[in-house]
Amino acid sequence: MSDDPFAASDAVVVAADPETVFAFLDEPANHAAITPGLADVRDIESLANGGKRLSYTYRIAGVGIDGEIVQTVHDPPARHAFELRGRLSGTIDLRLGPVDSGTELTYAATYDLPENALARVGAPVVRRFNERQLRAALESVAARFDGSE
């Protein structure tokens, strides 16, 4: 689905073992700290699969979009997967694998925006925005473990 303007994926190597990176990503407050535009996470509830359900506010162009995230896969230390529900719907899939220098973290996301949002800004703009946001989140995770903070 590489032609989907709302799909993006990228990877980064994080200087920590998969267990440490998984634990960091397992804490909802850390997602708010590393994800551009994610302004608030609240109403966190534990699920039977080990994951979480929570409400969030995502800010884009000064507008807050509220929704819900449900963790569909919680597989330590290899994978987190989430379903986004609400005005912004889609999926986020975080996969972690050991490499010599730490953990390769792959972030894949697919978003389903309302048609009027696409009509206003156009598919190429949405694609670039999604790719930049995803890359910034990956770089923020890597920066947490690079020893310079």
Rank of each mutant, 00 (worst) to 15 (best):
A39I: 01
A39E: 10
A39L: 10
D43V: 12
D43C: 08
I44H: 07
I44K: 01
G50K: 03
G51V: 06
S55Q: 11
Y56N: 01
T57C: 02
R59T: 13
I60W: 15
G62W: 00
V63M: 12
G67W: 01
E68H: 08
I69W: 03
I69K: 00
V70E: 04
H74M: 12
P76E: 09
A78W: 00
A78M: 01
H80W: 11
F82L: 06
E83T: 14
E83F: 02
L84E: 08
S89D: 10
T91D: 13
T91H: 08
T91W: 06
I92T: 07
D93C: 02
L96Y: 00
G97I: 11
G97L: 08
P98A: 15
V99K: 07
V99Q: 11
D100M: 13
D100L: 15
G102S: 08
T106K: 05
Y107K: 07
L113G: 01
P114Y: 08
L118G: 09
A119I: 15
R120I: 07
V121R: 03
G122R: 00
V125S: 02
V126M: 04
R127M: 09
R127F: 08
R127E: 15
F129V: 14
E131M: 03
R132C: 05
Q133P: 00
Q133I: 09
R135M: 02
A137G: 12
L138H: 06
E139D: 09
A143R: 03
R144M: 13
R144Y: 05
